[in-house]
Design a binder for these strands. Structure first.
Lengths: 209, 209
DNA sequence: AAGTGTTTTAATTGGTGGTTTGAATTCCTA
DNA sequence: TAGGAATTCAAACCACCAATTAAAACACTT
């Protein structure tokens, strides 16, 4: 078993278990035993449980963010004025594509993102903002240009409303989908939900202040 | 120290600590010591930590829900057609008023609600739905009537988008407000944020499908 | 005031958590 | 292939946890 193998086995197991149960509810013993590695390997390779959690997010967020930045470069190079809908579609579709071509489950990613924002007293939130904040500020700047005449404070609040709607619904997608299936017999895929989310979010951003 | 005193001291301390750190990150020892009561009092009065958590939510949600139901009764008795915006205002304002007149911090309430929904292995989610689901189904029914012609599945997804936007932004109100204050020098009150949220949510609900 | 049921207390139990250690093993290079 | 670094391993450590128990303190009735 090579080094990288052990490291990625730990990350794989941690990713799944964290998404299922949360961070404090997942012990290192559970992670290492499902990964099939020794308990001490976590502290050896990552230093601590906290750093393992950050590493899980790094592996998720770096390609996600890179693909967004590339997509924004591409879009901007076109010189066409970017509509809010187009930007939202770039964000969601680009992100989904980036995750799927990696073989990662987009739902799990959203679930982790949701946990990052509610658990751990905001350690993770700060980590994510400091590491990836610039890229998302760029996205926000472009989106803001697509909504001329909207007062900046209102715009930013609505951006957070959108973030909340996205993270909340996608991170509990399974639970919500199960409820709707029982009540209406209608199945919804993640893809369809994003297609519902984009126009709804756009309408929210465009609303009169 | 009378019985009710001990019980409510425990609930007060638990409420604050849970909202600050989450459930598993808060030990009974921390709760009882900040409450100034003996460790065994929790298990004596509530049975277990799990039941204490439920009790904290019950104390929060029961007056909250009761005030919503009364408001809905009042509104329905007026026989006027209810607009979506009016219903949202009833929900938010009624709830805020109910919490504030109790001397409870609305933000803390939202923070707890956020935690309840993200704890996946969700005994809390089930507890809340089974206890208060009927009242909120009634609200959803009225809101749905205010949006004729909207396909039910789309409506419900948008309801969850709205719930997500609300819980997410209000539960991290402090953090978001701090960022906006730094970037724009503009302070936002919780009241103002709700006044931004209502039209944004209404626009989302009214969007073309 | 005695007695009964209730509440609080302090000490204990059995268990799990993250982390550390030092020896054993594997890997790579010289 | 020999030697040294990197990695793995079993075991242990120590802090902390929820829950229980039995005795002490209290409140309330008769």
């Amino acid at each position: 078993m090579t080094q990288t193998d052990t490291v990625s086995r730990i990350l794989d197991a941690a990713e799944v278990l964290f998404a299922e149960r949360g961070f404090t509810e997942t012990s290192l013993r559970t992670i290492t035993s499902t990964a099939g590695v020794n308990l001490a390997a976590v502290n050896y390779h990552f230093g601590s449980k906290k750093e393992l959690i950050q590493a899980v997010f790094e592996r998720f967020l770096t390609p996600f963010t890179d693909s967004l930045v590339k997509e924004l470069d591409r879009r901007e190079a076109m010189e066409e004025p970017l509509s809010a809908e187009a930007l939202l579609n770039s964000l969601y579709r680009g992100a989904m594509a980036s995750l799927e071509c990696q073989g990662r489950d987009p739902q799990r990613f959203m679930r982790l993102l949701g946990l990052a924002y509610t658990q751990y007293q905001g350690h993770l939130r700060r980590f994510i903002v400091s590491r990836y904040g610039d890229s998302y500020r760029r996205f926000a700047g472009l989106l803001s240009k697509a909504l001329p005449g909207l007062d900046p404070v209102t715009f930013y609040w609505r951006l957070y409303f959108m973030l909340g709607a996205t993270i909340f619904t996608l991170s509990s997608f399974d639970a919500i989908e199960a409820i709707l299936r029982e009540d209406f017999g209608a199945e919804s895929s993640l893809q369809e939900t994003l297609e519902r989310l984009v126009p709804a979010a756009a309408a929210m951003l465009h609303a009169d202040a």
